[in-house]
């Protein structure tokens, strides 16, 4: 099902004010309802390689598969929708590609990447993430973080060692506890949420949320929601105006209208015709 009419996507990525190259990588495909953002890490250009591999492997593979099957088809093996399994499989595939490259080529040793991925289908969004790249949702007047970081800081907040307020000034914001390509196996966190027309989803690397307050990000989406491209550029600019100490990447997705999956007799006929 082609979602070009249902989703508006805008993105922007920038090396920031301090770093010489951009290790973030973004990819999107409105037709398949897929957006992916990765923040790479590793010496020299290994970070770029890792994040680039993650976005490329995942988008090309998923796009191909989704051209043939609907994400809401029932998997005969598990009796569940195949979307989550498809996404998980591709994330694992990207993980092993990066891991093997890191193992076999000394200049890539230790490289890895965070990941946040959204797959929109059937009035829902499936979210998979690893590390500290985030998904936010702006709906109506509210703006909230959807994903929970896999980071040392988040674990400390959860265990009550520090408050969210103290976390803002913490020193070790950058230590993530899960990432793609570091270990031979990894388990992405996958959730599914219903979407509504008018929702704006924001995928961003830590270069944005470390430099700009959540309240300011929310206000920007509220104020500039009418012009997604401008909103994306504005967010990157705000991060750079505040110091831009890391690469900044944002992807904005607005749900324009409902996009229920085709069901019933017609769907069966179409499936049979294929």
């Amino acid at each position: 099902m082609d979602l070009t009419q249902a989703l508006e996507i805008a993105s922007c990525t920038d090396p920031g004010m301090v770093r010489s190259h951009n290790e973030d990588s973004i990819a999107s495909n409105a037709a398949s309802g897929l957006v992916v953002l990765a923040d790479g890490m590793g010496g020299y250009n290994a970070g770029e390689v890792a994040s680039g591999m993650a976005t490329t492997v995942i988008t090309t593979e998923l796009q191909q598969i989704l051209a043939g099957v609907g994400p809401n088809q029932i998997d005969p093996q598990t009796n569940q929708e195949i979307a989550a399994r498809l996404v998980r499989d591709q994330v694992l595939k990207a993980n092993s590609s990066i891991y093997q490259a890191a193992q076999s080529q000394p200049q890539y040793a230790g490289m890895g990447t965070t990941l946040v991925l959204c797959l929109f289908f059937d009035n829902r969004v499936l979210v998979a993430h690893l590390g500290d790249s985030r998904l936010y949702l702006s709906r109506g007047g509210s703006f909230k973080q959807v994903t929970r970081d896999h980071s040392l800081l988040q674990e400390q907040i959860d265990s009550g060692l520090i408050t969210a307020e103290q976390a803002k000034n913490a020193q070790h914001k950058n230590l993530v506890t899960k990432a793609l390509g570091i270990d031979p196996s990894v388990e992405p966190e996958i959730h599914e949420y219903p979407t509504r027309p008018g929702d704006i989803y924001l995928l961003c690397s830590d270069g944005l949320c470390d430099m700009v307050d959540d309240a300011d990000i929310g206000m920007t989406l509220q104020a500039l929601g009418g012009n997604l491209n401008l909103a994306a550029q504005q967010l990157v600019q705000m991060a750079n105006d505040n110091g831009g100490r890391d690469n900044v990447s944002v992807i904005l997705v607005r749900v324009l209208r409902e996009y229920p999956a085709a069901r019933g007799v017609m769907a069966k006929v179409f499936a049979w015709l294929k």
């Binding site: 950058n174 230590l175 993530v176």
Partner: peptide, 21 residues
């Protein structure tokens, strides 16, 4: 440089977090 993202080994993490707790 504490701006840059780094990954922690989960095993080391757990030990550290437990000790902290």
């Amino acid at each position: 440089d504490f701006e840059k993202t780094m990954v922690l080994r989960p095993s080391a993490m757990k030990a550290a977090a437990e000790q902290a707790r």
